[in-house]
Computed example of a mutant assay.
Amino acid sequence: MKTFVLDPVCGELIIWENAVAILSYHGSLHYFCSIRCRKRFQHAPSKFTQQIQVLSGVP
């Protein structure tokens, strides 16, 4: 089973093992599809980081 991750810059779903770059920011790993996306993230990380609310289905 392949695990997909979301590139925070362009929104592309990628297989984590195929990520071109991986960065740690504030204790979280961020995966990128290209060097360009990584550079954009490094330039303004707060622009691309958001809290993602996980919907569990439990009230």
Rank of each mutant, 00 (worst) to 15 (best):
E17I: 06
V54R: 01
L55F: 00
R40H: 09
Q42M: 08
L55K: 03
N18Q: 12
I15K: 07
V54N: 00
T49I: 06
V58K: 10
P59N: 10
M1G: 15
W16I: 13
Q53R: 11
P45A: 02
R40A: 11
V54S: 04
L29Y: 03
P8E: 02
Q42I: 06
I14P: 15
R40L: 14
A44H: 13
Q53K: 12
F4R: 15
L23F: 13
K2D: 14
R36C: 01
V20Y: 14
L23P: 03
Q50H: 12
Q51L: 00
F32G: 02
I15Y: 04
S46T: 09
C33N: 05
M1T: 14
M1Q: 14
K2P: 15
L23V: 09
S56A: 01
Q50E: 11
F32H: 02
I22H: 01
D7M: 07
D7N: 07
V5H: 05
I52T: 10
A21T: 09
K39P: 00
L13H: 08
F32L: 06
K2G: 13
H26M: 15
I14T: 09
V20I: 07
K2T: 14
R40N: 09
K39C: 02
T49N: 05
K2M: 15
V58M: 03
S56D: 10
I14W: 01
M1I: 09
K47I: 11
T3P: 03
N18G: 08
C33G: 07
S24G: 08
F48E: 03
P59M: 07
V5R: 11
I52W: 08
L29S: 11
F32I: 06
A44N: 15
E17L: 08
Q53A: 13
C10E: 02
L6K: 15
C33E: 08
K47V: 11
Q53W: 06
G27A: 01
L6C: 13
F48W: 13
T49E: 06
